[in-house]
Design a binder for these strands. Structure first.
Length: 887
RNA sequence: AGGCGCGUAGCUCAGUGGGAGAGCGCCACCUUGACGUGGUGGAUGUCGUCGGUUCAAUCCCGUCCGCGCCUACCA
């Protein structure tokens, strides 16, 4: 007997999870195989920030990846799921800087090398927590292949890519306007800037003509930038300003005279139609400046403080300066008016500091040619995006893509492999560190201090993790990867760039499918955030409800194209489901724990089995198909639902209850058949749910009779065509309807469940009647009847409760127990429902156009429906008449 | 400004061109030899609005109302 292993009445997930986590690790069953002749399935994890802690978005993301990985591994694929973390340049540097601040130090106190050492030390000490949390989730990554974007190998790939792109002319250095974060002291890429609607002011300022003959009013939200104005722009066709062609503007608060330029960019409708131009602190103004040869004048420094060019305002913080400027303008009569104004203000995505657009020397990737390859790959179907709704967004974003600023003025990251020769000014970009200038031989060469954007290294992730630029076996086996699963918010940060880099360097897509899932929100649809206090912590959920319950919940919520509003009550509901599986298995085990493997042979000839077994096998076959197709098509919620409905509503509620009679009975053959089918179906169920709920399924599997290798390494069920049996399904549905009818009568008439009563079925169809008669014992078992009689014509006593079920009439004599008025009311309600349906059906059937245009099978179905409804109505009429008579 | 998505049972959500579903909640009954984290039965919906296409619309198309998100060179 090994059922003592399953003695626990409730599923105790904590110990089970811990047990299997270590068993799986010991067995090494997540290690990738690279066997010839097998198909391959591979995923690279979206590397979480090394500073990260597991949030519910990670939980969702990795649950979905794990489901697919486990599924394909069970299908016998060479399966690889590469785990790892991202060095997360700015984020990590910020964390360590905060730590230093606690010690009263800054990174400058340490110096670059010591600071970087400190970051590495931090990473060793604290950086691994997200990895151990992913392991707890059950993620079946090949953990021995864990990568870090600053690993030696990955760093080499980064450098190789940088050098090649530079030599191809796709990386260049230049002085352009960039998004500058004055707090992080670094440039940011366009997509690292978040735009937040902000209530601000629109200041209208009078700019007098140089000759004193009048003024033009300009509107701005950022008056402090006026100190850097080098022009005023108006629309070339704006009649109001034609005369300004040769008139200069005397810039208030300064002694400078600036020109008026004519540019299409100006919107005549906005404000006064006149625009102050600050080429050094506004992206548009920068462009206008270029077009009209306006000088650039920086007035704000790297820290967001007004610089020497700001004259008397020098040294003021930019926002303090704004106030001062407005006061001064007002005092001197230059301020026309101030309007309230709501507009989008760019913020640093890391620290939320307001971005200061500034010109500076930065490195860029010329992305247009790379983007074109990515777009082509998506257009011709080499890459599929799920859900489809993202195609348009993808194309329009790629269409408007601008060069990617990849240099960051921080210390933590891949340092740009470029040197400048102090003697001849040569720019040197090489894979190996140069000792001297290749042009003039000088040894006075200085390395670039900037590092690369974090996303530069993660863009290479699908091939850098597999050993590129070497031609490795991993690349040959697993590149391109099968699918990328990620949240839609990094489609452009990351997904698009992987496409570009993969196509350029591997000359092949990095993944065949992209599945974009939603953000997890709270049940009111709000983003989870610490400040709102609505965060659901997956670690807490796992502890409280079990990891399987959380995984199942997330899977059930993962419907394509829909946001996920996580409701804790749903998690609780699915915990009950996990417990239900557990108990079903526990029950089954009581009856099959000693069985020899040969009991399962009965399923080889399902047609020889009693109806109930034919039915459950048929349903099992169909559900296997549903689960498989759902997984193939990323319909995770359908997979969860198919499992849920099948296991609880069909396997537990009907099948297990039904076969109890055989399992407890004395008929040896019936018992063995039940044991055999039960075992087969239970094994199948456990395999079907394993990708979603690996722990409970592995535990159950381990205690089923016989020697069993790990479920994680077992074969996923194949749809068994031989089990499919539509006739059995139809027959069972009839029995279920009759049983439900009898239960309904008992419940409505408030007959105590243990009270033995008798039921009668009036059935005009002899074949059907015979079938019902032959099923009498099952029916009486399932409804606790003392007798069940079927007849073509039965005399119905007045004191009987009735249930109409199509062309069948079920009645139960209840001496003196029948509430005639109640019964009558029930029948009237029923009749009204049927009549309403009949009106619909008759409407169709009497409509010539319907008969003419609808497919024949639809018409036939309607006719069948009508016949059924008519029969039901007749039965109801008879029953009503009888009740009235006896009343 | 443009784009996308969503409005289905009290709540959280599935779903489909031809008889409206699940979970939770609610009502009634039940210590039925796995499970009260359970069982049985039940109630509850003009499938947001108005119009169009169709023999047939909750589903396809358009309008409007409400909500959410994303993108943008909105001074």
């Amino acid at each position: 007997m090994n059922d003592e292993k399953l003695l626990n009445k409730g599923y105790e997930f904590a110990e089970v999870e811990e047990k299997w986590l270590s068993r799986w690790r010991e067995a090494g069953c997540f290690s990738a195989t690279m066997d010839d002749g097998k198909p391959s399935f591979s995923i690279v994890i979206p590397p979480p920030n090394v500073t990260g802690v597991l949030h519910v978005g990670h939980a969702l993301n990795n649950t979905l990846q794990d489901i697919l990985t486990r599924y394909h591994r069970m299908r016998g694929y060479n399966t690889l799921w590469v785990p790892g973390t991202d060095h997360a340049g700015i984020a990590t540097q910020n964390v360590v800087e905060r730590q230093l601040a606690g010690e009263g130090k800054t990174r400058d106190d340490l110096g670059r090398d010591a600071f970087i050492e400190k970051v590495w030390a931090w990473r060793v000490e604290k950086g691994g927590s997200i990895i151990s949390q992913l392991k707890k989730l059950g993620a079946s990554c090949d953990w021995e292949r864990e990568r870090f974007t600053m690993d030696e190998g990955l760093s080499r790939a980064v450098r190789e890519v940088f050098v090649r792109l530079f030599k191809e002319g796709l990386i260049y250095r230049g002085d352009y306007i960039v998004n500058w974060c004055p707090r992080c002291h670094t440039a940011l890429a366009d997509d690292e800037v978040e735009h937040e609607e902000t209530k601000g002011k629109l200041y209208h300022i009078r700019y007098p003509y140089a000759d004193g003959s009048g003024h033009v009013v300009v509107a701005t939200t950022r008056p402090e930038t006026m100190l850097g104005d080098t022009g005023v722009a108006v629309h070339p066709e704006d009649e109001r300003y034609r005369h300004l062609a040769d008139v200069g503007i005397r810039l208030p608060l300064t002694d400078r005279v600036i020109p008026v330029v004519f540019d299409d960019h100006v919107d005549r409708e906005f404000g006064t139609g006149a625009l102050k131009v600050t080429p050094s602190h506004d992206r548009n103004d920068y462009e206008i400046g270029l077009r009209h040869d306006l000088p650039r004048l920086k007035v704000i420094d790297d820290k967001g403080v007004m610089n020497a060019a700001a004259g008397s305002y020098s040294g003021l913080d930019r926002f303090t300066c704004r106030k001062k400027i407005v006061e001064d303008l007002d005092r001197l009569g230059f301020l026309e008016k101030i309007d309230d104004y709501e507009h989008a203000v760019g913020q640093c995505y890391r620290c939320k500091t307001v971005i200061e657009p500034t010109t500076s020397v930065q490195w860029f990737v010329a992305v247009k040619p790379l983007a074109a390859k990515a777009v082509a790959a998506v257009r011709d179907g080499r890459i599929n995006i799920y859900p489809k709704s993202w195609y348009n967004t993808f194309y329009s974003w790629m269409d408007g893509i601008r060069d990617w600023c990849i240099s960051r003025q921080i210390w933590w990251g891949h340092r740009i492999p470029a040197w400048t020769c102090n003697d001849c000014g040569e720019l040197i970009v090489e894979s190996e560190d140069p000792a001297s200038c290749p042009k003039c031989g000088s040894r006075a060469i200085v390395r670039e201090t900037d590092v690369l954007d974090t996303w530069f290294s993660s863009a290479l992730w699908p091939f850098s993790t597999m050993g590129w630029p070497e031609k490795t076996r991993e690349l040959a086996t697993f590149y391109p990867t099968s699918v990328l699963i990620t949240s839609f918010d990094i489609l452009f940060f990351w997904v698009a760039r992987m496409m570009m880099m993969g196509l350029h360097f591997m000359e092949e897509v990095p993944f065949k499918d992209v599945y974009l899932h939603a953000l997890v929100r709270d049940k009111y649809g709000k983003k989870m955030s610490k400040s709102t206090g609505n965060v659901i912590d997956p670690l807490v959920v796992m502890k409280e409800y079990g990891t399987d319950a959380m995984r199942f919940t997330l899977t059930a919520f993962a419907a394509q194209g829909r946001e996920i509003r996580l409701d804790e009550e749903r998690i609780e509901g699915y915990r009950h489901f996990i417990n239900k599986i557990w108990n079903a298995a526990r029950f089954a085990l009581m009856h099959v724990s000693d069985c020899a493997a040969s009991v399962k042979d009965v399923v080889a000839a399902p047609r020889k089995l009693p109806l109930i077994h034919r039915w459950i096998l048929s349903r099992t076959a169909v559900v296997i198909g549903e689960v498989r197709s759902g997984l193939e098509e990323y319909r995770f919620n359908d997979v969860a639902s198919a499992n849920y409905q099948f296991i609880w509503r069909e396997f537990c509620d009907w099948y297990l209850e039904w076969i109890k009679a055989d399992l407890f009975g004395t008929d040896r053959k019936a018992k063995e058949q039940a044991q055999g089918v039960l075992l087969v179906v239970l094994e199948t169920i456990v395999k079907l749910v394993h990708p979603i709920t690996p722990f409970v399924s592995e535990e159950i599997w381990s205690v089923l009779p016989g020697e069993r290798p790990l479920l994680a390494g077992s074969a996923f069920p194949e749809r068994q065509a031989g089990w499919e049996d539509p006739e059995a399904v139809e027959r069972m549905e009839l029995l279920m309807a009759v049983i439900t009818g009898i239960r309904n009568i008992r419940s409505e008439a408030e007959v105590h469940p243990s009270a033995k009563i008798e039921a009668f079925v009036v059935c005009g169809d002899p074949e059907k009647g015979a079938f019902l008669s032959s099923s009498a014992s099952a029916i009486t078992d399932m409804t606790r009847l003392s007798g069940f009689t079927v007849g073509a014509t039965l005399v119905k006593p007045a004191d009987a409760a009735t249930y109409i079920c199509g062309d069948l009439e079920i009645f139960v004599p209840l001496k003196g127990l029948v509430d005639i008025a109640g019964e009558l009311a029930k029948l009237v309600r029923e009749r009204q429902k049927i009549e309403a349906k009949l009106i619909q059906v008759n409407g169709k059937l009497t409509n010539g156009k319907f008969i003419a245009n609808a497919p024949a099978e639809v018409v036939a179905k309607e006719q069948e429906k009508k016949a059924m409804l008519d029969a039901t109505l007749a039965k109801i009429g008879e029953a009503e008449a009888r009740l009235k008579q006896s009343a």
